[in-house]
């Protein structure tokens, strides 16, 4: 009962926090480019405006996919807040990812189709890394559950430094930040227009924006697990990681999917392999 309560609270609070984090992201990005940037609550203005726009669609199936993306993203955050099984959380967010891809596939426009294929490649790149990180956490705690992480007396980061790097890698891809803004970009300077988002408009795009906030929270939640022993450590780690993400986003250019897949699978596997061997050897 308590965990259900936590899940519901998480699902209610996450979009608010996620939206604010996105707003902060935009301000910091603007500052990096010596601009002033939008107000903090700009993402909420954007979503509300989109929600109020006319409903247009090319294929009704898009509407289905947008809703399922949001629901799955919300459910995964709910499960995280309830302290559920990490693999389950991961699988549920994959539901959202798959539906986003299907929604992009739903319209025979070259931009969204190429975006969909690239998004699949991004999934191929980040999913194994996240699974391996979860396995690392399992080896430390003896359980796949999130609440087991909070029972530890030492931050995970000390034992899983390389896996933390790997997770950072994976999350950059998951959030589609440069150099991995391959399938879609939050800024409109991409060769495939807006990739997977191209064909969603109005309220459906609003749903996708909100789903993205949930994903930001999910990602930050995963990061926070690495310093679960103190609140201050948690906040510090999350802030530092996200700041690093923004910095990387601003200083790097977009890479090709080949480079992404090759470098991520290679370095990700080597790093997580080394870290896991340490744990097995214990």
């Amino acid at each position: 009962m308590k965990s259900l309560f936590l899940a519901l609270i998480g699902m209610a609070v996450a979009p608010v926090v996620g939206g604010l984090v996105s707003g902060l992201d935009r301000i910091l990005t603007a500052r990096c480019q010596s601009r002033k940037g939008p107000p903090l609550i700009q993402p909420f203005y954007d979503a509300a405006k989109l929600w109020g726009k006319e409903v247009t669609a090319t294929n009704p199936w898009q509407a289905f996919c947008a809703v399922m993306y949001l629901v799955a993203a919300a459910a995964s955050v709910g499960l995280l807040c309830a302290g559920s099984d990490l693999l389950l959380i991961f699988f549920v967010q994959a539901v959202g990812a798959v539906f986003l891809v299907m929604g992009a596939y739903a319209v025979p426009s070259p931009y969204s189709q190429i975006g969909a294929q690239r998004e699949l490649l991004q999934m191929v790149a980040y999913e194994p890394l996240i699974i391996l990180t979860i396995v690392g956490i399992r080896l430390m705690t003896g359980s796949f559950r999130v609440d087991a992480v909070f029972a530890l007396d030492q931050p995970l980061l000390f034992k899983l430094p390389l896996l933390f790097l790997v997770l950072g890698y994976a999350l950059t891809i998951k959030l589609r930040k440069s150099p991995f803004d391959i399938s879609a970009c939050h800024h409109a300077h991409q060769e495939i227009v807006r990739g997977v988002y191209t064909e969603f408009s109005g309220p459906y795009l609003a749903l996708i924006e909100i789903a993205h906030w949930y994903e930001v929270i999910l990602v930050l939640g995963l990061v926070s697990l690495f310093w679960a022993t103190s609140i201050a450590g948690m906040i510090l780690l999350v802030a530092a990681t996200y700041a690093a993400e923004i910095l990387v986003d601003n200083v790097s250019s977009r890479m090709t999917w080949r480079w992404m897949l090759g470098s991520v699978w290679l370095s990700g596997l080597v790093l997580s392999g080394i870290n896991l061997v340490w744990l097995y050897a214990r």
């Binding site: 289905f64 319209v107 025979p108 408009s201």
Partner: peptide, 14 residues
């Protein structure tokens, strides 16, 4: 939502 989208204004692929 899908049912409602059927009655929405249809646009062509971009």
């Amino acid at each position: 939502a899908m049912r409602q989208a059927r009655t929405a204004r249809m646009t062509r692929p971009y």
